[in-house]
Design a protein around this nucleic acid. Structure first.
Length: 775
DNA sequence: TTACCTCCTAGCAACCGAGG
DNA sequence: CCTCGGTTGCTAGGAGGTAA
């Protein structure tokens, strides 16, 4: 009661205030002064567009609606065209801000990630700054494109806006960069190497320049003239030199000057002590912690999947896709075998399929909502199936826990789905989920996922998610992960045993994230009759995870850059623990481009950087009216420069080039394939052991391949043992079957039906890329 | 699958107001 | 009246959505 009265009183007061305002003359707001938009209205428009995501066409209406409520009359309006330019101004201000902040910062680190959208590659870049007061800030440096503007350009923009004084130099930027954070993909690692090299060169050049400045003028003159002599000589003597255009001459001499500085820089650098040298070139790479975890779990799973076959145990039920299921039930025996061979099953696959059934992206297709309602009525609360995807962190582990805890509900639900339908049939996918859920071997795998999830994944994430942690300080934690895994491998009863406790089972000794899942796991572990393999499977999973962890923690190894660095160095090279900034940014690019497919990258960058980097505040605080005026000018210049058209042309050319290269590649592959086939048709089978033993290993391989064309008992290329003796054995088996007349070479269309195995490798190895795959 | 609609952008050209 | 800096109108055109 009192509250309503108070708010009523407030409203009344507000209305009074509004009346007063309305009666005053100052209640109009002019967007323009002398026909030019004021800085205030520009800032407002930018905030509306970039920070609040208001569509360009609604800006005017928004301003008017708010103004009306406040009792202010707005004078003038702003066209979409002008709004676009104001956004460009925001983008330029954001670049200026970035250079400004980098100039002040004590240390800078970079982070990046890439993705493709509609066949175009996008790279997201963030800069993390260690400010003079020890605080850190992460700024979006932009979404770049393969053919895109460079950092150099950013610096010239800065100098334009700031009016040229205290000119910022790209070369001052290089030594400040102390590190780089990316995922573990090879292309990103290459980028890191290139960057480190560039940084070194910049440093030497500046060092050399300084050294030259300290020399007596006479020496410098002498050096320069010597250098010019050299340049002219390499250009082919004075006569040739005179023929060169001015630009070419300038190019030659600037190159030579750079070279001179570099040599001087190197000389200076060589005189430093080794500690100083290391301090100067200090540059460190770290890999995103989320990726480490993701890949470790994948590594564990791979090892676990292989365990069944290696130990001759019948593994989880096969979950065939629709086509293979049809082939296996109706096709010829060859098709049947093939369908069985290419199909897989197992915990991860089941959880994936369950993901598509229980929470399909498209609500109409999946059972997303009806499941939610069902669980709500049955359990009294809503529970959601985790979004299982290869690239979503810890989703499979979470799904495994969800399964263990609510298994019976999900099974019942699948039944309801069945009986709700007119046809009373499950789709193939639903059937597969049902099969997987009812298979004890699959359940054993799922239990391993859940155990890993509770003991390693969640405790690890709890540790690294602390937002202010510096990844460079996480060496001990990763050592602990490895040690803990070794501990668990040595004694899985720490997790599975009846007396297991979170104190010894989890990485950080803190309670389990989902204790109900642990109860389920222990119940399963007690039941050795139904789940006899669980212990050995879990050990295998953990071993696989351990190996992957070791591989993905290379940057922390003893004696490495991080290990040797001082606390102060690590502070200057502060990096976040995860690369989520970049991954999130790329996600935003995707959604923005889907909504506005024609939005240019520069426009997107302008909006995005303005928002993320809080450029509005920067403009207000640090850009004097004069600088804002220059901002306007620069924006106009950029606007009329036709960047976007240039970008499209560059992209088109790039695409053309790629098409050409791909075609070339195809031709070469075809040639290789044909050569391999020709070799195969030319094979003369050797039928005696004596003959076979005289052959070289590659000839034996060829013979085996020849038999493989028609003899299904010859193992697939990847399963063929290595070592000459073993290969001879395999070959002689095939020879035996051939000689006895059990197998017959096909003479008709064998080559078009069967792919010689050389082509598998030429296609690239699909199995390997997902280790680095992400969005 | 097709035809049409909607949304959004780029960039040219025309327009407008201020100041000399 | 002219020039210049700034603003706006206009159109082509691509991409996604959607109904037939």
């Amino acid at each position: 009661m009192r509250v309503t009265r108070a708010s009523a009183a407030k409203t009344c007061a507000n209305e009074k205030a509004r009346d007063i305002l309305a009666t005053e003359a100052a209640s109009t707001f002019s967007l323009k002064e002398k026909g030019v938009f004021t800085n205030v209205s520009r800032a407002m428009v930018r905030d509306l567009v970039a920070n609040l995501d208001i569509p360009l066409r609604s800006i005017n209406a928004t301003i008017n609606v708010v103004a009306e409520a406040l009792g202010v009359e707005v004078e003038g309006d702003v066209s979409q065209r002008s709004i676009r330019r104001m956004v460009i101004e925001g983008g330029i201000a954001a670049e200026t801000q970035l250079v400004d902040e980098i100039t002040c910062a004590r240390g800078v680190t970079l982070s990046g990630d890439g993705t493709t959208h509609k066949n175009i590659n996008y790279q997201s870049h963030h800069v993390t700054l260690t400010l003079p007061d020890g605080q850190t800030a992460t700024r979006l440096a932009g979404i770049l494109h393969e053919v895109n503007h460079t950092t150099n350009e950013m610096y010239s923009t800065y100098n334009d806006v700031m009016g040229g004084h205290n000119a910022a130099d790209i070369r001052d930027f290089a030594p400040k960069v102390k590190g780089m954070l990316t995922d573990h993909a090879e292309d990103q690692k290459k980028l890191v190497r290139l960057f480190a090299e560039w940084k070194r060169e910049c440093e030497r050049e500046v060092r050399g320049e300084k050294a030259l400045a300290c020399l007596p003028p006479a020496d410098v003159v002498r050096l320069l003239s010597e250098m010019m002599e050299n340049v002219i000589e390499t250009a082919g003597g004075y006569q040739q030199w005179d023929l060169l255009s001015l630009d070419e001459r300038q190019l030659h001499s600037s190159k030579a000057i750079r070279q001179l500085r570099m040599t001087f820089g190197e000389k200076e650098f060589a005189s430093l002590s080794s500690a100083e040298k290391e301090a100067v070139d200090f540059f460190v790479w770290a890999g995103c912690c989320m990726h480490k975890e993701l890949n470790a779990a994948k590594g564990g799973n791979t090892r676990m999947r292989a365990w069944w076959e290696q130990n001759g145990v019948d593994g989880p039920v096969l979950l065939m896709n629709k086509d293979n299921a049809a082939a296996a039930s109706a096709g010829s025996s060859v098709a049947k075998d093939r369908a069985v061979q290419v199909s897989t099953g197992g915990g991860q696959k089941t959880l994936d399929l369950a993901g598509s059934v229980f929470r399909h992206k498209d609500d109409k297709k999946g059972q997303h909502n009806s499941l939610r309602y069902y669980l709500e009525t049955e359990l009294g609360f809503t529970s959601q199936w985790p979004n299982t995807s290869n690239t979503r962190y810890h989703s499979h582990g979470d799904a495994a826990c969800e399964y263990l805890v609510h298994k019976s509900w999900y099974m019942q639900f699948l039944e309801i789905v069945l009986f709700k339908k007119e046809s009373r049939t499950h789709t193939n996918m639903e059937q597969n989920v049902f099969r997987g859920f009812s298979c004890l071997r699959t359940e054993e795998e799922i239990t391993c996922w859940a155990s890993y999830n509770q003991c390693l994944t969640h405790p690890y994430l709890r540790t690294i998610r602390n937002s202010s942690t510096n990844i460079l300080d996480l060496g001990p934690i990763h050592a602990k992960v490895i040690a803990h895994l070794q501990c668990l491998i040595a004694d899985v009863d720490l997790v599975l045993g009846p007396s297991a406790s979170h104190e010894t089972a989890t990485l950080d000794g803190r309670p389990f994230e989902r204790p109900e899942a642990i109860y389920a796991i222990q119940r399963i572990a007690q039941d050795q009759k139904n789940y006899p393999h669980l212990r050995r499977l879990l050990v295998t999973f953990l071993e696989g995870a351990l190996d992957t962890w070791v591989r993905f923690c290379g940057e922390f190894t003893a004696g490495g850059v991080i290990d040797k660095s001082s606390a102060a160095q690590r502070e200057m090279a502060y990096m976040k623990t995860t690369n989520n900034d970049n991954e999130g940014a790329l996600g935003t690019v995707r959604t923005s481009l889907r909504r506005a497919p024609h939005m240019s990258l520069s426009h997107l960058n302008s909006r995005f950087m303005y928002k993320k980097n809080m450029t509005g505040t920067y403009i207000q605080k640090f850009l004097r009216p004069g600088a804002q005026k220059r901002l306007l000018k620069k924006a106009r210049a950029v606007d009329t420069r036709g960047d976007e058209r240039k970008r499209r042309v560059a992209q088109a050319n790039y695409d053309k080039e790629r098409v050409r290269k791909n075609k070339q590649l195809d031709v070469r592959r075809k040639e290789q394939r044909e050569a391999a086939e020709a070799k195969l048709t030319a094979v003369v089978p050797r039928l005696t052991l004596a003959e076979v033993e005289k052959l070289r290993v590659d000839e034996i391989n060829l013979q085996i391949r020849w038999y493989r064309q028609f003899d299904k008992d010859v193992p697939a290329a990847k399963n063929t043992p290595s070592g000459k003796a073993k290969k001879v054995e395999v070959l002689m088996d095939a020879v035996g079957r051939y000689v006895r007349g059990e197998t017959h070479p096909k003479h008709d269309t064998q080559h078009s039906m069967e792919q010689p195995d050389g082509s598998n490798n030429a296609q690239g190895m699909p199995g390997c890329e997902d280790e680095y795959d992400d969005e």
